Simulated scan of single mutants.
Amino acid sequence: MNAQVGSRPYQEATARLPLVRTFLEARYRKAFFAHRALTHHIYRGVFRTFDDAQASIPAGHASGYDNTESADLYRERTRRVFINDYPMMHWLGRWFADGARSVFDIGGHIGIAYYAYQKYLAYPRDLRWTVMDVPAVNAAGERWASEHDPHARLRFADDVAQASGTDVLFAAGSLQYLRHSLAEMLAKMDRKPRFLLLNSVPVHMRESYFTVQNIGTACCPYRVTAERDFLGGITSLGYELQDRWENPQRYCVVPFHPELSLDRYFGFAFRSIQA
């Protein structure tokens, strides 16, 4: 049923049949909150704010990553990289060569990129890699690091303000889960990071909105940002775009809203022009 509801022709047809659409939306809502597949994320609804999206999640349903089941996800990703990781490794390697020694990884879970990339990059001996995540994930990450990080380069944080003064602000598939936009967070930092390395960012060509994502273990408010808002917000803070790439393996189908669905995500590398 999900594939049918999520298909563009089907959505466009039902949009012209209000009674049918109302019935299908109600049926999809039930299926959405019953979804438990970890390998297939699904989406529901369009909302103006993070709080509106959060309010649409039933009170008894798990929300966000701050729970044991969500914290136990992604262990296999510490041992492999994907095609969209290669631009990230390219720029990280260049910036290490340029003197970068600290990475602040927003939503890096237990340190997925830190572990996976070290097989392909020569990490500086004095590297400090800090992951910021929710308490349940940080606790799981510290337990994992006690056994898998012999060089003790990995640290954990609970506040994005701790990214102030870091060399590289790193975010791979995490910005969409945050209450505040990246530009809003950067604007509050006294010393902004020299470099921004961002991957798997859901960017729409025209519209900014929130939806809700079901990751199998919980539901999460999910930010999609208009291209002009995303790029304009960052460049207005003194950053210059160095690179941009597409990830066609990631997509976001919002049933009943074909005009807002995404058929690819994006990655970006920025350098501070003041660095």
Rank of each mutant, 00 (worst) to 15 (best):
G64M: 07
Y65V: 00
Y65A: 00
D66T: 03
D66V: 04
N67E: 06
T68D: 12
E69T: 12
E69G: 03
E69C: 05
S70L: 05
S70G: 08
A71H: 00
A71P: 01
A71K: 00
A71S: 04
D72W: 03
D72P: 02
D72I: 02
L73D: 02
L73P: 01
Y74P: 05
Y74W: 15
R77P: 00
R79L: 10
R79Y: 05
R80V: 11
R80I: 10
R80M: 15
N84H: 15
N84R: 13
D85T: 13
Y86F: 15
P87S: 13
P87Y: 12
P87F: 13
M88C: 14
M89W: 09
M89V: 11
H90S: 14
W91N: 04
L92S: 10
L92Q: 10
G93K: 03
G93F: 04
G93N: 11
R94L: 15
R94V: 14
W95F: 11
W95T: 04
G99W: 03
A100D: 03
R101Y: 10
R101Q: 13
F104H: 05
I106E: 01
I106K: 02
G108Q: 03
I110S: 00
I110Y: 01
I110M: 05
G111L: 06
G111F: 04
G111T: 05
I112T: 12
I112Q: 00
Y114N: 02
Y114F: 15
Y115I: 03
Y115P: 03
A116L: 06
A116S: 13
A116N: 05
A116T: 04
Y117H: 11
Y117D: 03
Y117W: 14
Q118H: 12
K119Y: 11
K119D: 09
Y120E: 08
Y120G: 00
L121T: 06
L121P: 05
A122V: 13
A122L: 12
A122T: 13
P124K: 10
P124Y: 10
P124L: 12
R125M: 08
R125S: 14
R125Q: 14
D126W: 06
L127C: 11
L127K: 11
R128C: 12
R128W: 09
T130N: 09
T130D: 09
M132T: 05
V134E: 10
V134N: 04
N138C: 14
N138A: 13
N138I: 06
A139V: 05
A140Y: 00
A140W: 00
A140S: 10
G141N: 07
G141A: 06
G141I: 02
R143N: 09
R143Y: 02
R143F: 03
W144P: 01
A145T: 13
S146I: 01
E147A: 11
H148C: 01
H148V: 01
H148M: 04
D149T: 11
H151D: 11
H151P: 07
A152H: 13
A152V: 08
A152F: 06
A152W: 04
